[in-house]
């Protein structure tokens, strides 16, 4: 029963020095908060070039999730790493626009490949 679950797991992987966070289920608020600290922790411990959050499985971006994504974007930028959100469903993009959410520093990409391209081109600029 879904009601009985109070723990959700989001497994992250590091690919090409980027932290990839594939979100496969609609997130509980607590899971987002946990994920947020995990991402910041990984940035500190690993030599990361970027954080890629894949939202392809997400149907609902409510104001809490939007606020947390904006916070993650701002915090990672402060730590020198961009956060890129990828694979928004068109309907979800439309509703984010309707709600007039401000996602702040986060960068949007079509899919994970596009996200890696953005991170690669940003790294080149710096070098």
């Amino acid at each position: 029963m879904m009601e009985d679950l109070d723990v959700q797991l989001v497994s992250t992987t590091i690919v090409n020095k980027c932290l990839v966070v594939p979100i496969q289920v609609e997130l509980f608020d607590d899971t987002i908060i946990q994920l947020q600290s995990e991402i910041l922790d990984k940035i500190q411990k690993e030599d990361l070039r970027g954080v890629i959050i894949d939202l392809s499985a997400i149907n609902v971006v409510d104001s809490f999730l939007a606020g947390k994504l904006r916070e993650i974007g701002y915090q990672t930028v402060l730590m020198g790493v961009d956060t890129i959100l990828t694979s928004l469903k068109p309907e979800v993009a439309a509703s984010i626009a309707d709600m007039e959410y401000d996602l702040g520093n986060v960068i949007m990409a079509r899919d994970q490949d596009h996200a890696f391209q953005i991170i690669d081109s940003n790294s080149k600029k710096i070098i």
Partner: peptide
């Protein structure tokens, strides 16, 4: 979990009664 369940119920019901995808979301 109830928040997620009820918003997913709403999505399905909205689609079923004829709302567009965007309106349903």
């Amino acid at each position: 979990a109830d928040i997620i369940t009820v918003s997913s119920n709403a999505l399905n019901i909205a689609k079923k009664i004829g709302f567009s995808e965007t309106a349903s979301y």
